[in-house]
Design a protein around this nucleic acid. Structure first.
Lengths: 238, 238
DNA sequence: CGGAAGCTTGAATATGCTCAACACGGGTGG
DNA sequence: CCACCCGTGTTGAGCATATTCAAGCTTCCG
């Protein structure tokens, strides 16, 4: 699985081709530590819609997102659903120190993950303060994001919600945008977007149409969006 | 300020009377560590409504809630406001590792805090993995709570939102309730409740009235609530 | 007693939801 | 190859829920 070099301070083969090698959790590790970690990791691939773990199943492994988008959802007994988090590369997925976190984890798009068994990571964290600190920062960032979305959910109109969502996606997955333009594929279906924004799919659809007719976005295909002027989209976010 | 005993493994005088001595962050410390921390702490008191720190001001100190409720809010440019967190004793207040967290911190009720300067705590955390771990767990708990409220904000009706809020308060500040009853003073005004639930004050008021007329709660005074049967209230939460 | 702040209640309105029909695209099978 | 179907997204009409605006009530404090 992992080819070990004669010089053990080399980057592990598995990680050499990893695009997020220096970002996210792994950025906190030096070559030796990375090697130790890589002995336990496995890169896996999932189709859009695949369930990675559900609300009740206890967590048996953590992962880093290498490609694609992972969504975290919570559900009420009667089936109403809310997306409570979206994770992009190089985010860390999974709640440390086990718990009743009660979120269900799904691949929103096709994803590639770097999985690491629970025990292995917890061991590594216990021995490595830098890593623990990095995970703390990731957790704080997630908390900030969750609070940002609470404002959107509680206080913005449907139009503002949809604009905010598009702006989020544009700034997270669209390739370098020097001239203030962005073009991208939405990693979420209309149903997922609705569940994220606390709306119905019809309302999401209508607001997308409004943004299109007012020239803020161009819908190239259902999922393929062009934003000619990000500043103009941002202005619609509140 | 802090009386130092001959035996330095004694609990500091300041902490001896502290009701949350063994809970929250301080629960991670042994007597010596607690002493080290207590050299820097100061217990302070604030009136309801007092601003403890605002969205732009950088953080200069952290605190533990000893009594009362602290609210975290975010505001849009046009003044729309959303409460994004409520902290009860013995919660920790403040975002570690400085940042653009952008929340404004206010005393929701009269509060007593145990303040610790930023540098002192960061030093202590760097030397003490147990403490860091404890703060990580607090952060994860806050994240779970934020996500729980995202479901409420995005997917529940006004009636369910108000019931959920009352249930939250009942289970957090009401004295021991063996028989499934609870009686308490609301630490938040109607305006704050509305900002927490993403509603208007009128809607909050109407829903409280409905809960009263249907016998789920008794409104003893405007802020003083009796819940004869918590299970019945819980059933209204979704 | 008067005034202010916080809370409640009512009537009219608007925003987003429900239900229903239709459009589009990609795959399957006759 | 075309007909058909299924999943996904769009559009419309009517409706319900929560908001807005306005008035009145309580409670607290001078």
């Amino acid at each position: 699985m992992t080819r070990i070099d004669i010089h053990n301070s080399q980057t592990p083969a598995l990680c050499q081709s990893c695009e997020i090698r220096h970002k996210g959790m792994c950025g906190a590790l030096d070559a030796d530590e990375l090697l130790a970690l890589s002995r336990h990791t496995r890169q896996v691939r999932h189709e859009a819609g695949a369930q990675l773990s559900s609300e009740d199943t206890p967590i048996t492994s953590y992962a880093n997102v290498m490609r694609g988008v992972v969504k975290l959802t919570k559900m009420l007994e009667d089936g109403r659903q809310q997306v409570v988090g979206l994770q992009f590369a190089p985010d860390f997925v999974g709640r440390m120190y086990g718990s009743n976190s009660d979120v269900s984890v799904e691949a929103a798009s096709n994803v590639e993950l770097c999985r690491v068994p629970r025990a292995a990571l917890e061991q590594l964290v216990a021995d490595n303060p830098k890593l623990e600190r990095r995970l703390m920062e990731q957790t704080l960032r997630e908390l900030d994001e969750a609070r940002g979305w609470m404002v959107t959910l509680g206080r913005k109109t449907a139009a503002e919600k949809v604009a905010s969502f598009l702006y989020l996606i544009a700034t997270h997955i669209s390739p370098q945008d020097d001239a203030g333009a962005a073009e991208f594929d939405l990693p979420l279906s209309r149903a997922d977007i609705a569940d994220f924004l606390g709306l119905t799919i019809e309302t999401v659809s209508r607001q997308m149409t409004k943004l299109r007719t007012s020239g803020v976005i161009t819908i190239i295909a259902n999922r393929h969006i062009l934003v000619p002027d990000l500043a103009r989209l941002k202005a619609r976010c509140s």
